[in-house]
Simulated scan of single mutants.
Amino acid sequence: MINKIIKSLEGINERAAAIEFRGDANYTKACMETLTSLAYGNNYHVYGHANIIEPTMNEWLYDMVWCTPEPQSIFHIQKIHLVVESEWKTGKDEQEYDFYKLVQARAELRLFIFQAKSVEDRMNYFKDIVERSSIAQEGDNYLLACWNDDGGFTFGSFSKGGGWDYLSN
């Protein structure tokens, strides 16, 4: 799943360059539309931002949730595949607030989308939060997508109790 998410978000780089959009709302919209398409392609139910793919969609606890509902009701969740939070403000305090939502989330994968000038330092900062957290569980999986000044994402993936599994840009 991580490689599919990375590949789909890498497409945002080209979209951003082509239409030269700037601003938090536009980046969030582009990311959420891309992730919604990927979720539907994997037959997941999605809670997230209303967008051109699904204008009636609503957020549920997080910016986006991919899940498999129980057959009797979409509100009875069988499995949560992905939880997404994003924060485009570059301050640690603003980002930390949203990142902590992921630390307590129970999902196969937690994705945090953000921007920073020092990508590696900020990614290590978030990994340290997870490692110190008493609520995060051994083996919890995280994917970090950091938009940088070069106009593209840098990705880092790790599990609590493990090292960096993947780092690219």
Rank of each mutant, 00 (worst) to 15 (best):
F155K: 01
T36R: 06
Y40Q: 13
W88M: 15
E131M: 03
D140G: 03
D24V: 06
K160M: 10
D165G: 08
F75Q: 10
F75W: 14
A17Q: 09
L9F: 00
T68K: 12
K92C: 08
M57K: 15
S8T: 14
K127M: 06
N42W: 04
D93K: 11
S168G: 08
I135M: 06
K7Q: 13
Y40N: 06
K7D: 14
I19W: 13
D24I: 04
G11A: 08
G48Q: 07
T154G: 07
E96H: 04
T36K: 01
L82G: 13
M1E: 00
G161M: 11
D149P: 13
L61F: 12
L9P: 02
V65E: 13
E20R: 12
L82C: 15
H49I: 03
W60N: 11
K89Y: 04
E96N: 07
S118P: 01
D165I: 08
W164D: 01
V119M: 01
S133E: 02
F112Q: 00
I135K: 05
E10N: 11
L82S: 12
K7M: 10
L111S: 01
C146K: 07
L38D: 04
R132S: 14
G139V: 03
I52M: 10
L109M: 02
Q115R: 14
Q115A: 06
W88E: 05
I53H: 10
K79L: 13
E70K: 15
A25C: 02
K101T: 01
L82Q: 11
R122I: 10
I74A: 14
D98N: 10
L38A: 04
N3E: 05
F112T: 01
I2E: 01
L102V: 00
L9C: 01
M32P: 05
Y47W: 12
S86M: 12
D128Q: 11
E70F: 14
K117E: 09
W164I: 05
E10L: 05
N169V: 10
Y125D: 02
H45Q: 12
L35E: 06
E10H: 03
W164P: 09
S73M: 12
W60S: 08
S168I: 12
